[in-house]
Write a protein that binds this DNA or RNA. Structure first.
Lengths: 203, 203
DNA sequence: ATTGACATGAGACAAATGCCTCATTAGAAT
DNA sequence: ATTCTAATGAGGCATTTGTCTCATGTCAAT
Protein backbone atom coordinates (compact mmCIF):
# COMPACT_ATOMS: atom_id res chain seq x y z
CA UNK A 1 0.00 0.00 0.00
CA UNK A 2 1.16 3.45 -0.82
CA UNK A 3 1.85 6.04 1.89
CA UNK A 4 -1.15 8.01 3.00
CA UNK A 5 -0.15 11.56 3.73
CA UNK A 6 3.36 12.40 2.73
CA UNK A 7 5.54 12.43 -0.32
CA UNK A 8 3.64 13.28 -3.49
CA UNK A 9 -0.02 14.00 -2.89
CA UNK A 10 -0.79 15.17 -6.41
CA UNK A 11 0.54 12.14 -8.13
CA UNK A 12 -1.22 9.88 -5.68
CA UNK A 13 -4.56 11.58 -6.05
CA UNK A 14 -4.26 11.50 -9.79
CA UNK A 15 -3.62 7.81 -10.11
CA UNK A 16 -6.24 7.03 -7.53
CA UNK A 17 -8.78 9.10 -9.39
CA UNK A 18 -7.75 7.52 -12.70
CA UNK A 19 -8.28 4.07 -11.30
CA UNK A 20 -11.69 4.86 -9.90
CA UNK A 21 -12.79 6.58 -13.08
CA UNK A 22 -11.60 3.70 -15.20
CA UNK A 23 -13.42 1.23 -12.99
CA UNK A 24 -16.59 3.28 -13.13
CA UNK A 25 -16.34 3.61 -16.89
CA UNK A 26 -15.86 -0.11 -17.41
CA UNK A 27 -18.67 -0.99 -15.05
CA UNK A 28 -21.00 1.35 -16.85
CA UNK A 29 -20.26 -0.48 -20.07
CA UNK A 30 -20.65 -4.03 -18.95
CA UNK A 31 -20.43 -6.57 -16.20
CA UNK A 32 -17.48 -7.06 -13.91
CA UNK A 33 -14.15 -5.77 -15.18
CA UNK A 34 -11.04 -7.53 -13.95
CA UNK A 35 -8.41 -5.60 -12.13
CA UNK A 36 -6.20 -6.02 -15.14
CA UNK A 37 -8.79 -4.35 -17.34
CA UNK A 38 -9.17 -1.47 -14.95
CA UNK A 39 -5.44 -0.98 -14.66
CA UNK A 40 -5.02 -1.07 -18.41
CA UNK A 41 -7.83 1.40 -18.96
CA UNK A 42 -6.34 3.70 -16.35
CA UNK A 43 -2.95 3.32 -18.01
CA UNK A 44 -1.50 2.14 -14.76
CA UNK A 45 0.36 -1.03 -13.94
CA UNK A 46 -1.44 -3.82 -12.17
CA UNK A 47 0.94 -3.60 -9.24
CA UNK A 48 0.09 0.04 -8.73
CA UNK A 49 -3.60 -0.72 -8.64
CA UNK A 50 -2.93 -3.16 -5.83
CA UNK A 51 -0.99 -0.46 -4.06
CA UNK A 52 -4.15 1.61 -3.83
CA UNK A 53 -6.81 -1.00 -3.24
CA UNK A 54 -6.54 -4.20 -1.23
CA UNK A 55 -8.51 -6.20 -3.78
CA UNK A 56 -10.64 -5.89 -6.86
CA UNK A 57 -13.82 -5.88 -4.80
CA UNK A 58 -12.80 -2.85 -2.84
CA UNK A 59 -11.91 -1.01 -6.03
CA UNK A 60 -15.22 -1.72 -7.69
CA UNK A 61 -17.14 -0.91 -4.54
CA UNK A 62 -15.40 2.40 -4.12
CA UNK A 63 -15.83 3.21 -7.77
CA UNK A 64 -19.52 2.64 -7.29
CA UNK A 65 -19.42 5.02 -4.42
CA UNK A 66 -19.21 8.33 -6.19
CA UNK A 67 -22.84 8.28 -7.11
CA UNK A 68 -23.63 11.84 -6.26
CA UNK A 69 -26.41 12.00 -3.77
CA UNK A 70 -27.28 15.63 -3.24
CA UNK A 71 -26.39 16.90 0.17
CA UNK A 72 -28.88 18.48 2.50
CA UNK A 73 -28.19 22.06 1.48
CA UNK A 74 -28.74 21.65 -2.23
CA UNK A 75 -31.66 19.33 -1.62
CA UNK A 76 -33.57 21.86 0.45
CA UNK A 77 -32.23 24.88 -1.37
CA UNK A 78 -35.44 26.32 -2.76
CA UNK A 79 -37.62 24.65 -0.19
CA UNK A 80 -39.64 26.72 2.20
CA UNK A 81 -41.83 24.04 3.75
CA UNK A 82 -41.45 23.31 7.39
CA UNK A 83 -43.55 20.16 7.20
CA UNK A 84 -41.25 17.28 8.11
CA UNK A 85 -43.31 14.80 6.14
CA UNK A 86 -42.93 16.77 2.95
CA UNK A 87 -39.24 17.25 3.56
CA UNK A 88 -38.73 13.59 4.32
CA UNK A 89 -40.46 12.68 1.12
CA UNK A 90 -38.02 14.88 -0.71
CA UNK A 91 -35.18 12.97 0.90
CA UNK A 92 -36.73 9.63 0.14
CA UNK A 93 -37.38 10.67 -3.43
CA UNK A 94 -33.77 11.75 -3.89
CA UNK A 95 -32.30 8.61 -2.40
CA UNK A 96 -34.73 6.32 -4.15
CA UNK A 97 -33.97 7.89 -7.47
CA UNK A 98 -30.24 7.70 -6.89
CA UNK A 99 -30.57 4.01 -6.16
CA UNK A 100 -32.69 3.09 -9.16
CA UNK A 101 -30.56 5.21 -11.46
CA UNK A 102 -27.35 3.54 -10.34
CA UNK A 103 -28.74 0.24 -9.27
CA UNK A 104 -25.80 -1.97 -10.23
CA UNK A 105 -23.29 0.23 -8.46
CA UNK A 106 -25.51 0.54 -5.44
CA UNK A 107 -25.92 -3.20 -5.22
CA UNK A 108 -22.20 -3.78 -5.46
CA UNK A 109 -21.57 -1.14 -2.87
CA UNK A 110 -24.11 -2.61 -0.50
CA UNK A 111 -22.75 -6.11 -0.92
CA UNK A 112 -19.27 -4.90 -0.22
CA UNK A 113 -20.31 -2.87 2.80
CA UNK A 114 -22.26 -5.76 4.22
CA UNK A 115 -19.45 -8.29 3.98
CA UNK A 116 -16.54 -6.03 4.74
CA UNK A 117 -16.65 -6.89 8.39
CA UNK A 118 -16.21 -10.56 7.51
CA UNK A 119 -13.07 -10.42 5.44
CA UNK A 120 -10.99 -8.41 7.87
CA UNK A 121 -8.97 -10.19 10.54
CA UNK A 122 -11.14 -10.86 13.59
CA UNK A 123 -10.53 -8.58 16.53
CA UNK A 124 -9.54 -5.81 14.16
CA UNK A 125 -11.48 -2.57 13.98
CA UNK A 126 -14.33 -2.38 11.49
CA UNK A 127 -14.20 0.76 9.38
CA UNK A 128 -17.51 2.62 9.71
CA UNK A 129 -19.80 2.48 6.75
CA UNK A 130 -20.23 5.79 5.07
CA UNK A 131 -23.57 7.20 5.79
CA UNK A 132 -25.46 9.74 3.77
CA UNK A 133 -28.80 8.87 5.19
CA UNK A 134 -28.86 10.24 8.70
CA UNK A 135 -27.67 13.74 7.84
CA UNK A 136 -30.41 14.03 5.26
CA UNK A 137 -33.06 12.76 7.63
CA UNK A 138 -31.79 15.09 10.26
CA UNK A 139 -31.93 18.04 7.92
CA UNK A 140 -35.44 17.13 6.89
CA UNK A 141 -36.60 17.11 10.49
CA UNK A 142 -34.61 20.17 11.51
CA UNK A 143 -37.34 22.80 11.18
CA UNK A 144 -39.77 20.67 13.13
CA UNK A 145 -37.46 19.61 15.90
CA UNK A 146 -39.44 21.41 18.52
CA UNK A 147 -42.40 19.15 17.86
CA UNK A 148 -40.63 16.13 19.29
CA UNK A 149 -38.96 15.25 22.51
CA UNK A 150 -35.26 14.46 22.22
CA UNK A 151 -35.70 10.73 22.76
CA UNK A 152 -38.64 10.58 20.39
CA UNK A 153 -36.65 12.43 17.75
CA UNK A 154 -33.81 9.99 17.95
CA UNK A 155 -36.12 7.04 17.76
CA UNK A 156 -37.91 8.56 14.82
CA UNK A 157 -34.68 9.19 12.94
CA UNK A 158 -33.51 5.68 13.47
CA UNK A 159 -36.81 4.19 12.39
CA UNK A 160 -36.82 6.36 9.30
CA UNK A 161 -33.31 5.21 8.46
CA UNK A 162 -34.66 1.68 8.20
CA UNK A 163 -37.00 2.81 5.46
CA UNK A 164 -35.40 5.44 3.30
CA UNK A 165 -31.98 4.10 2.36
CA UNK A 166 -30.61 1.76 -0.26
CA UNK A 167 -31.77 -1.31 1.59
CA UNK A 168 -35.37 -0.25 1.44
CA UNK A 169 -35.30 0.02 -2.31
CA UNK A 170 -33.59 -3.33 -2.63
CA UNK A 171 -36.05 -5.04 -0.31
CA UNK A 172 -38.97 -3.62 -2.24
CA UNK A 173 -37.50 -4.90 -5.47
CA UNK A 174 -36.11 -8.27 -4.43
CA UNK A 175 -38.27 -9.37 -1.53
CA UNK A 176 -41.57 -7.66 -2.10
CA UNK A 177 -41.15 -7.63 -5.87
CA UNK A 178 -43.14 -4.45 -6.31
CA UNK A 179 -42.44 -1.70 -8.78
CA UNK A 180 -40.94 1.66 -8.02
CA UNK A 181 -44.22 3.49 -7.90
CA UNK A 182 -45.70 1.19 -5.32
CA UNK A 183 -42.49 1.13 -3.33
CA UNK A 184 -42.54 4.90 -3.19
CA UNK A 185 -46.17 4.82 -2.10
CA UNK A 186 -45.51 2.36 0.69
CA UNK A 187 -42.57 4.33 1.95
CA UNK A 188 -44.46 7.61 1.86
CA UNK A 189 -47.22 6.10 3.92
CA UNK A 190 -44.79 4.66 6.41
CA UNK A 191 -42.90 7.91 6.72
CA UNK A 192 -46.07 9.82 7.47
CA UNK A 193 -47.20 7.21 9.98
CA UNK A 194 -43.92 7.29 11.85
CA UNK A 195 -43.72 11.06 11.99
CA UNK A 196 -47.24 11.36 13.27
CA UNK A 197 -46.67 8.66 15.84
CA UNK A 198 -43.59 10.47 17.06
CA UNK A 199 -45.57 13.67 17.41
CA UNK A 200 -47.85 12.17 20.03
CA UNK A 201 -46.93 13.03 23.62
CA UNK A 202 -45.56 9.60 24.47
CA UNK A 203 -45.90 5.97 23.45
CA UNK B 1 -24.34 -28.64 -14.33
CA UNK B 2 -25.88 -31.92 -13.38
CA UNK B 3 -29.41 -32.82 -14.43
CA UNK B 4 -32.10 -31.50 -12.18
CA UNK B 5 -34.88 -34.03 -11.94
CA UNK B 6 -34.09 -37.32 -13.54
CA UNK B 7 -31.55 -40.03 -13.27
CA UNK B 8 -30.36 -40.62 -9.73
CA UNK B 9 -31.96 -38.30 -7.22
CA UNK B 10 -30.49 -39.96 -4.13
CA UNK B 11 -26.92 -39.73 -5.23
CA UNK B 12 -27.39 -36.17 -6.31
CA UNK B 13 -28.97 -35.10 -3.06
CA UNK B 14 -26.23 -36.80 -1.11
CA UNK B 15 -23.34 -35.08 -2.81
CA UNK B 16 -25.14 -31.78 -2.76
CA UNK B 17 -25.73 -32.12 0.96
CA UNK B 18 -22.13 -33.18 1.52
CA UNK B 19 -20.87 -30.12 -0.28
CA UNK B 20 -23.10 -27.75 1.65
CA UNK B 21 -22.25 -29.35 4.96
CA UNK B 22 -18.55 -29.21 4.22
CA UNK B 23 -18.81 -25.56 3.26
CA UNK B 24 -20.76 -24.75 6.40
CA UNK B 25 -18.27 -26.64 8.54
CA UNK B 26 -15.28 -24.86 7.06
CA UNK B 27 -16.92 -21.48 7.32
CA UNK B 28 -17.73 -22.09 10.94
CA UNK B 29 -14.07 -22.75 11.57
CA UNK B 30 -12.54 -19.84 9.78
CA UNK B 31 -12.75 -17.27 7.05
CA UNK B 32 -13.42 -18.03 3.42
CA UNK B 33 -12.67 -21.57 2.28
CA UNK B 34 -11.68 -22.09 -1.31
CA UNK B 35 -13.75 -24.35 -3.49
CA UNK B 36 -10.88 -26.78 -3.46
CA UNK B 37 -10.99 -26.95 0.32
CA UNK B 38 -14.72 -27.53 0.32
CA UNK B 39 -14.49 -30.24 -2.30
CA UNK B 40 -11.69 -31.98 -0.42
CA UNK B 41 -13.57 -31.82 2.85
CA UNK B 42 -16.65 -33.21 1.17
CA UNK B 43 -14.53 -35.94 -0.43
CA UNK B 44 -15.72 -34.90 -3.82
CA UNK B 45 -13.77 -33.86 -6.86
CA UNK B 46 -13.51 -30.22 -7.73
CA UNK B 47 -15.22 -30.78 -11.04
CA UNK B 48 -18.22 -32.25 -9.28
CA UNK B 49 -18.53 -29.27 -7.02
CA UNK B 50 -18.72 -27.07 -10.08
CA UNK B 51 -21.40 -29.33 -11.44
CA UNK B 52 -23.63 -28.40 -8.53
CA UNK B 53 -22.81 -24.75 -7.99
CA UNK B 54 -22.00 -22.14 -10.61
CA UNK B 55 -19.27 -20.58 -8.50
CA UNK B 56 -17.76 -20.56 -5.07
CA UNK B 57 -19.88 -17.61 -4.03
CA UNK B 58 -23.11 -19.43 -4.71
CA UNK B 59 -21.91 -22.42 -2.74
CA UNK B 60 -20.95 -20.39 0.30
CA UNK B 61 -24.11 -18.35 0.13
CA UNK B 62 -26.29 -21.42 -0.05
CA UNK B 63 -24.35 -23.09 2.72
CA UNK B 64 -25.11 -20.04 4.83
CA UNK B 65 -28.72 -20.42 3.97
CA UNK B 66 -29.80 -23.26 6.17
CA UNK B 67 -30.09 -21.07 9.21
CA UNK B 68 -33.33 -22.36 10.53
CA UNK B 69 -35.79 -19.59 11.02
CA UNK B 70 -38.87 -21.00 12.70
CA UNK B 71 -41.90 -21.05 10.48
CA UNK B 72 -45.18 -19.41 11.37
CA UNK B 73 -46.78 -22.48 12.88
CA UNK B 74 -44.09 -23.27 15.41
CA UNK B 75 -43.58 -19.60 16.16
CA UNK B 76 -47.19 -19.06 17.14
CA UNK B 77 -47.73 -22.52 18.52
CA UNK B 78 -48.49 -21.70 22.15
CA UNK B 79 -49.60 -18.20 21.41
CA UNK B 80 -53.14 -17.14 22.12
CA UNK B 81 -52.84 -13.40 21.63
CA UNK B 82 -54.76 -11.81 18.84
CA UNK B 83 -52.95 -8.51 19.19
CA UNK B 84 -51.06 -7.97 15.94
CA UNK B 85 -48.46 -5.81 17.62
CA UNK B 86 -47.54 -8.50 20.09
CA UNK B 87 -47.45 -11.10 17.37
CA UNK B 88 -45.34 -8.93 15.14
CA UNK B 89 -42.89 -8.40 17.94
CA UNK B 90 -42.59 -12.14 18.24
CA UNK B 91 -41.74 -12.31 14.56
CA UNK B 92 -39.25 -9.50 14.83
CA UNK B 93 -37.66 -11.07 17.86
CA UNK B 94 -37.27 -14.40 16.10
CA UNK B 95 -35.79 -12.91 12.95
CA UNK B 96 -33.56 -10.51 14.81
CA UNK B 97 -32.19 -13.28 16.94
CA UNK B 98 -31.60 -15.50 13.94
CA UNK B 99 -29.62 -12.73 12.31
CA UNK B 100 -27.41 -11.88 15.26
CA UNK B 101 -26.81 -15.52 16.02
CA UNK B 102 -25.68 -16.28 12.49
CA UNK B 103 -24.45 -12.89 11.53
CA UNK B 104 -21.58 -13.93 9.23
CA UNK B 105 -23.74 -16.32 7.26
CA UNK B 106 -26.56 -13.82 7.05
CA UNK B 107 -24.21 -11.16 5.74
CA UNK B 108 -22.80 -13.45 3.11
CA UNK B 109 -26.25 -14.52 2.12
CA UNK B 110 -27.46 -10.95 1.85
CA UNK B 111 -24.45 -9.89 -0.18
CA UNK B 112 -24.99 -12.76 -2.55
CA UNK B 113 -28.69 -12.12 -2.89
CA UNK B 114 -28.14 -8.44 -3.54
CA UNK B 115 -25.61 -8.92 -6.32
CA UNK B 116 -27.03 -12.02 -7.89
CA UNK B 117 -29.00 -9.99 -10.38
CA UNK B 118 -25.76 -8.40 -11.60
CA UNK B 119 -23.76 -11.44 -12.47
CA UNK B 120 -26.34 -13.13 -14.61
CA UNK B 121 -26.53 -12.38 -18.33
CA UNK B 122 -28.65 -9.30 -18.92
CA UNK B 123 -32.12 -9.97 -20.24
CA UNK B 124 -32.17 -13.26 -18.44
CA UNK B 125 -34.68 -14.02 -15.72
CA UNK B 126 -33.72 -13.12 -12.17
CA UNK B 127 -34.36 -15.97 -9.75
CA UNK B 128 -36.61 -14.75 -6.96
CA UNK B 129 -35.00 -14.22 -3.64
CA UNK B 130 -36.20 -16.63 -1.02
CA UNK B 131 -38.45 -14.92 1.38
CA UNK B 132 -39.24 -15.94 4.90
CA UNK B 133 -40.38 -12.55 5.97
CA UNK B 134 -43.74 -11.99 4.37
CA UNK B 135 -45.32 -15.28 5.43
CA UNK B 136 -44.36 -14.57 9.03
CA UNK B 137 -45.72 -11.05 8.89
CA UNK B 138 -48.85 -12.35 7.28
CA UNK B 139 -49.31 -14.96 9.98
CA UNK B 140 -48.78 -12.36 12.66
CA UNK B 141 -51.49 -10.18 11.21
CA UNK B 142 -53.86 -13.01 10.41
CA UNK B 143 -56.08 -12.87 13.51
CA UNK B 144 -56.50 -9.13 13.14
CA UNK B 145 -57.12 -9.02 9.44
CA UNK B 146 -60.64 -7.74 9.87
CA UNK B 147 -59.30 -4.56 11.43
CA UNK B 148 -57.79 -3.40 8.17
CA UNK B 149 -59.02 -2.73 4.70
CA UNK B 150 -57.41 -4.94 2.04
CA UNK B 151 -55.32 -2.14 0.58
CA UNK B 152 -54.25 -0.94 4.00
CA UNK B 153 -53.28 -4.46 4.98
CA UNK B 154 -51.09 -4.84 1.96
CA UNK B 155 -49.44 -1.53 2.53
CA UNK B 156 -48.87 -2.37 6.15
CA UNK B 157 -47.29 -5.70 5.36
CA UNK B 158 -44.95 -4.14 2.86
CA UNK B 159 -43.94 -1.37 5.22
CA UNK B 160 -43.31 -3.89 7.99
CA UNK B 161 -41.15 -5.94 5.65
CA UNK B 162 -38.84 -2.94 5.38
CA UNK B 163 -38.26 -3.08 9.10
CA UNK B 164 -38.24 -6.63 10.34
CA UNK B 165 -35.86 -8.53 8.06
CA UNK B 166 -32.15 -9.05 7.83
CA UNK B 167 -31.57 -5.65 6.32
CA UNK B 168 -33.04 -3.88 9.30
CA UNK B 169 -30.61 -5.54 11.66
CA UNK B 170 -27.69 -4.79 9.38
CA UNK B 171 -28.68 -1.15 8.99
CA UNK B 172 -29.00 -0.76 12.73
CA UNK B 173 -25.57 -2.22 13.21
CA UNK B 174 -23.63 -0.72 10.31
CA UNK B 175 -25.35 2.57 9.58
CA UNK B 176 -26.91 3.58 12.87
CA UNK B 177 -24.25 1.82 14.92
CA UNK B 178 -26.58 1.08 17.77
CA UNK B 179 -26.61 -2.05 19.88
CA UNK B 180 -29.12 -4.85 19.66
CA UNK B 181 -31.22 -3.67 22.56
CA UNK B 182 -31.75 -0.24 21.10
CA UNK B 183 -32.33 -1.64 17.65
CA UNK B 184 -35.03 -3.84 19.05
CA UNK B 185 -36.57 -0.89 20.84
CA UNK B 186 -36.63 1.24 17.70
CA UNK B 187 -38.18 -1.51 15.68
CA UNK B 188 -40.81 -2.25 18.29
CA UNK B 189 -41.82 1.37 18.34
CA UNK B 190 -41.97 1.52 14.56
CA UNK B 191 -44.01 -1.64 14.33
CA UNK B 192 -46.57 -0.33 16.77
CA UNK B 193 -46.74 3.01 15.02
CA UNK B 194 -47.32 1.41 11.64
CA UNK B 195 -49.98 -0.98 12.86
CA UNK B 196 -51.89 1.77 14.59
CA UNK B 197 -51.65 4.02 11.58
CA UNK B 198 -53.03 1.25 9.42
CA UNK B 199 -55.93 0.81 11.79
CA UNK B 200 -57.24 4.30 11.16
CA UNK B 201 -60.13 4.50 8.70
CA UNK B 202 -58.01 5.93 5.89
CA UNK B 203 -54.87 7.98 5.32
C1' DA C 1 -27.46 -60.22 -14.41
C1' DT C 2 -27.07 -57.08 -17.87
C1' DT C 3 -27.54 -52.87 -19.92
C1' DG C 4 -27.61 -48.04 -20.53
C1' DA C 5 -27.91 -43.70 -18.86
C1' DC C 6 -26.05 -40.84 -15.47
C1' DA C 7 -22.79 -39.22 -11.96
C1' DT C 8 -18.09 -38.89 -10.83
C1' DG C 9 -12.80 -38.46 -10.81
C1' DA C 10 -8.68 -37.06 -12.84
C1' DG C 11 -6.35 -33.90 -15.05
C1' DA C 12 -5.31 -30.22 -18.43
C1' DC C 13 -6.03 -25.44 -19.41
C1' DA C 14 -6.46 -20.31 -19.58
C1' DA C 15 -7.44 -16.60 -16.93
C1' DA C 16 -7.49 -13.92 -12.71
C1' DT C 17 -5.86 -12.91 -8.06
C1' DG C 18 -2.82 -11.26 -4.74
C1' DC C 19 1.95 -10.73 -3.40
C1' DC C 20 6.64 -9.93 -4.15
C1' DT C 21 11.24 -7.80 -5.85
C1' DC C 22 14.07 -4.75 -8.36
C1' DA C 23 15.04 -1.17 -11.52
C1' DT C 24 13.39 3.29 -13.19
C1' DT C 25 10.90 7.55 -13.07
C1' DA C 26 8.94 11.65 -11.49
C1' DG C 27 7.92 14.91 -7.94
C1' DA C 28 9.32 17.90 -3.97
C1' DA C 29 12.64 20.13 -1.31
C1' DT C 30 16.88 22.16 -0.95
C1' DA D 1 19.93 22.45 -10.81
C1' DT D 2 20.61 18.83 -7.96
C1' DT D 3 19.30 15.43 -4.79
C1' DC D 4 16.58 12.36 -2.38
C1' DT D 5 12.60 9.90 -1.80
C1' DA D 6 8.20 8.33 -2.97
C1' DA D 7 5.62 6.35 -6.69
C1' DT D 8 5.61 3.50 -10.57
C1' DG D 9 6.44 -0.31 -14.20
C1' DA D 10 7.79 -4.72 -15.41
C1' DG D 11 7.72 -9.10 -14.47
C1' DG D 12 7.78 -13.40 -11.79
C1' DC D 13 5.34 -16.58 -8.68
C1' DA D 14 2.01 -19.47 -6.22
C1' DT D 15 -2.77 -19.96 -5.75
C1' DT D 16 -7.53 -19.90 -7.04
C1' DT D 17 -11.15 -19.91 -10.31
C1' DG D 18 -13.99 -21.72 -13.81
C1' DT D 19 -14.30 -24.73 -17.98
C1' DC D 20 -13.51 -28.70 -20.59
C1' DT D 21 -12.70 -33.65 -21.96
C1' DC D 22 -12.37 -38.40 -21.35
C1' DA D 23 -12.27 -42.49 -18.80
C1' DT D 24 -14.39 -44.90 -15.04
C1' DG D 25 -17.77 -46.12 -11.70
C1' DT D 26 -22.47 -46.67 -10.18
C1' DC D 27 -27.30 -46.62 -9.81
C1' DA D 28 -31.83 -48.22 -11.60
C1' DA D 29 -34.76 -50.46 -14.65
C1' DT D 30 -35.48 -54.31 -17.22
Amino acid sequence: MVAANKGRPHQRLRTRKDLLQAAARLMRQGGKPSLEDVAADAMVSRATAYRYFPDIGALLAEASLDVDVPDAETLFAGETTQDPVVRLEIVDQALHQAVVEHEPQMRRMLAHAVTRSLDIPPGDAIPPRQNRRLPLIDAALAPARAQFGPAALRRLEYALALIVGTEGVIVAKDVLRINDAEARRVKRWAIRALVEAARKPNR
